[in-house]
């Protein structure tokens, strides 16, 4: 019984982190219809920036969150407005190839700037843990889950209630109608990409706290985001959360009860099954990219 509870708790924590890491990818896919293959690079950029800021300012890495998100917001806006938009204007495939190329270039620039060595962010409370009954919780992972949930809620509120959120949803649902209503669609696309990049950066901080990282990890986070989005559905924080939690649970339950080398097998099996049975994801939504 304890083992099941511990496994589910571990899955929940892991799932929350997967969800945060995927939400930006999901939003870009849902609104811009772009499969952003440089998503993992934005995640890693967040981790590296958190490391730099926390060391330079002597503050806890989680406190660098606003700063990192602000930098990534600006980077995301410029990246979309001046690079991706040109490819989007031509073809969706072009934008995917462009982001792939950018990912390759940025990975090598990261190696040049930060070295290929593994890095890790170690806050003062990195190695503490606590118990709830018989279940052991790693403080770092729990704080990562908490940060993920808070940020996902903030994004959901932003999309639901703010003016920006309404414009983003309107553009995602009917781009032409939004344009006719006077929405500057290119600006909205850039803002959406900026918000997504900021959340990718936030995910990078959380991931950097719990895992060692190096520039070569970018593909892992792009791939995980892709799986989460397909499982949960495109374009919404709720879909990303559901997909992330599902992926986390499946990973830990498989590792515990089938074998530690099998989580990837079950993860991709689930992906194939869902694509066959429900291609819009569990929370298939009204965003145009999923239709």
């Amino acid at each position: 019984m304890n083992l099941i509870a511990q496994t589910l708790a571990d899955g929940l924590v892991l799932g929350g982190i997967y969800a945060l890491a995927a939400v930006g990818f999901s939003l870009i896919f849902g609104v811009l219809h772009v499969i952003n293959l440089s998503h993992g690079i934005l995640v890693l950029l967040g981790a590296y920036l958190a490391l730099i800021f926390s060391q330079a300012l002597g503050i806890d890495p989680l406190l660098t969150l606003p700063l990192v998100m602000a930098v990534l917001f600006a980077v995301g806006y410029v990246y979309q407005r001046f690079l991706i938009q040109h490819a989007v204007d031509r073809s969706p495939l072009g934008s995917m190839l462009l982001t792939f190329g950018v990912a390759l270039m940025l990975q090598n620039i990261m190696i040049w700037v930060f070295s290929p060595d593994m890095k890790n962010i170690t806050p003062s409370w990195a190695f503490t843990s606590f118990h709830l009954g018989a279940v052991n919780f790693d403080a770092v992972r729990v704080s990562a889950l908490f940060a993920s949930l808070v940020l996902l809620c903030c994004l959901a509120l932003l999309l639901k209630f703010s003016a920006l959120g309404r414009v983003i949803r309107a553009t995602a649902q009917q781009t032409m109608a939004a344009r006719l209503c006077g929405v500057n669609v290119r600006h909205v696309y850039a803002l959406t990409f900026a918000v997504s990049a900021a959340f990718a950066g936030a995910a990078g901080i959380v991931i950097g706290i719990i895992l060692p990282f190096s520039p070569s990890d970018e593909a892992t986070w792009t791939l995980n985001a892709f799986v989460v989005v397909v499982l949960g559905g495109v374009g919404s924080p709720a879909g990303a959360l559901l997909g992330g939690l599902l992926l986390g649970m499946v990973s830990t339950l498989t590792a515990q009860y089938i074998g530690p080398s099998f989580p990837n097998v079950t993860m991709f099996l689930l992906l194939v099954l869902l694509l066959l049975v429900r291609p819009t994801g569990l929370l298939g939504n009204a965003f145009s990219a999923s239709r």
Binding site: L3, Q6, T7, D10, L14, D138, L211, D217, T220, S251, T252, A255, Q256, G259, P260, S261, P263, N264
Partner: peptide, 14 residues
């Protein structure tokens, strides 16, 4: 046996 690039080893440690 863990996957080639593990992100979580909590079940093994359990």
């Amino acid at each position: 046996e863990l996957p080639a690039k593990p992100t979580d080893v909590s079940s093994v440690l359990g």
